[in-house]
């Protein structure tokens, strides 16, 4: 393992190899880090994707509905509910869900540990509670963003222009309100992808879900520096990539940035 060499030198070697795509060996278990990341990354991606696919459309829809007619009953319920969901940290939501649905009702397993030979898709039940936990926080957060942006756009002068053109409310909302309200919403969501990763790591830990997040926690637990560096590197790379995608998306949506000037 080259522990006799100077830490700086070891770090340099690690970087050199990492650039080539070789993250080295884990300190225990005799597996390569590459294979560990490779087996766990799809699990995390699956969790994130399912949570996103459920949370994003539903929360955008709910946020828009609340924002178009603020101060109605629906809006109040959604606003207060989302405020609650946001103010409770994920690990508490997770634990509560676990107690209710796993311990009390026994509908879903309380931990997501895979037995040898099992895959997540083969035992989709273990996905439910982690997904629900992440979705809860995401849903509340996106709903509030969408609602605030819709309300702001509804009050803008150009929406007034659209209404006084004689357009129907449906056209006003679909052509004028939504495109402009979604630009900042999507941007903020995308720019907070990092924050959501934080949530995923916590949730993976709570449910012992075999993803990259629990790998990171495991590296900390076992003081495996190399594993820690490697998972952090992978997470940072995903984060950077997500932010880049967010910026590109923003440019695609917003003509003021798109133009090459």
């Amino acid at each position: 393992m080259g522990l006799d060499r100077h830490p700086v030198e070891r770090y340099a070697v690690w970087i050199k190899n990492a650039v080539r795509g070789d993250l080295g060996m884990a300190a225990r278990g005799g597996a390569t880090i590459n294979s560990m990341v490779k087996s766990r990354l799809p699990n995390s991606a699956l969790l994130a994707a399912v949570a996103f696919l459920i949370a994003v459309p539903t929360s955008l829809l709910a946020g828009v509905l609340a924002g178009i007619r603020p101060d109605t009953k629906l809006d109040r319920i959604l606003s207060i509910g989302s405020l609650l969901a946001i103010s409770i940290p994920e690990f508490i939501i997770g634990v509560i869900l676990m107690m209710v649905f796993a311990t009390k009702l026994g509908w879903f397993p309380s931990s997501s540990i895979l037995l040898p030979g099992e895959t997540i898709l083969g035992t989709p039940k273990i996905l439910v509670l982690p997904t629900l936990t992440i979705t809860g926080a995401l849903f509340a957060y996106i709903l509030r963003m969408a609602r605030a942006n819709v309300i702001e756009v509804m009050e803008s002068n150009y929406v007034r222009t659209a209404i006084l053109k004689g357009l129907s409310m449906r056209k006003v909302v679909f052509k004028h309100v939504l495109p402009n309200a979604m630009i900042p919403t999507i941007t903020v969501i995308a720019n907070n992808v990092g924050w959501m990763f934080g949530g995923i790591i916590v949730v993976e830990f709570v449910f012992a879900y075999p993803g990259i997040g629990s790998l990171l926690i495991m590296a900390i637990d076992t003081r495996d520096m190399r594993l820690l560096q490697s998972t952090a590197l992978v997470i940072a790379a995903i984060y950077a990539f997500a932010n880049l995608a967010a910026d590109l998306l923003y440019g695609l949506l917003n003509p003021r940035v798109r133009v090459g000037q």
Partner: peptide, 22 residues
């Protein structure tokens, strides 16, 4: 609605904010 934009139309102060930016 049939009146607005058709029989009665309006021009506003501050054209910058009265046009849809996107």
């Amino acid at each position: 609605r049939e009146l607005r934009g058709n029989r009665i139309a309006m021009v506003y102060q501050d054209p910058t904010t009265s046009l849809n930016p996107s």
